[in-house]
Amino acid sequence: MNIFFICALRAEAKPFIEALNLKKLLDQRAFDVYKRNNFFLCISGIGKVKAAAATAYVLTAFSKNAGDILINCGVAGYNTPLISKGETVLINKITDQDTFKEFFPNIIISHSYKEHEIHTFSKAVSLSSPEKKEFVDMESSGVYIAASRFLYLNNIYFLKVALDNLSPEGIKEESILSVMSENVNSILNFAESADLLSQNTSFEFNFSQEDERKLSELFEKMKLTKSMKDKVILLLKKRYVYGKKTLPDMQNIIFPVTNKDERKKEFDKLIEYLS
């Protein structure tokens, strides 16, 4: 599975880029996207709208599977004794402070982080703000709304590192870099666990790339309609479920077709072969 990181700031992203030796993809213009193997990182910029846009952008371009992992990580402000400075918190509820809509990342993984809810604001919140909350950021709701269109909710994670005691004006880039660097290894270990869990709990039927290529060739040769293709795929899935895990050699029993009658004849032959 692919693993995506969405960070608002370069200082939040840098420890991941270095730890994973990610390389910038020069052909990506809308957002800075980094990649190595199955790891992707996108820097969104500050705010939920940019975060949603970046999430949709990178998932559209690079995610092919609802089992891919997405982790929104970055710093957040806190105003509660339950959370300590520098601590990574796994978010179990997001409230958008503009719409008051609630979102619930579905935590199915076993983990050692503290869990807490977060409130996403459109502007920085300080201790003097009347609407201040215990734990706040500016991206989570945007990332959730976009990512939940693509991925299973249990594969969307929000790991927020407590940084400022609701005094956003005093935040320095070095302090962001420092707290993120302290937490990067733990977050990468978490990402690895999330990936392993997702890989081992796939309930979706997917043909391998090689099998997909073979099927596509066969369908082209037989000029099958959509419903005919669906029937063939259903029978192949049935064979798989009943223990025949490899794709049968169908090319050799099928002749290329040139008209509807030939197609019908070859299709019936194939269905009989697979049944």
Binding site: N92, K101, Y152, L153, N154
Partner: peptide, 19 residues
């Protein structure tokens, strides 16, 4: 986890039912 309406969590799309 406090919820204003249970449907916000129960009816969300893209839940992994089998998991």
């Amino acid at each position: 986890i406090e919820v204003s309406d249970y449907r916000n969590v129960f009816n969300s799309h893209n839940q992994n039912f089998n998991l």
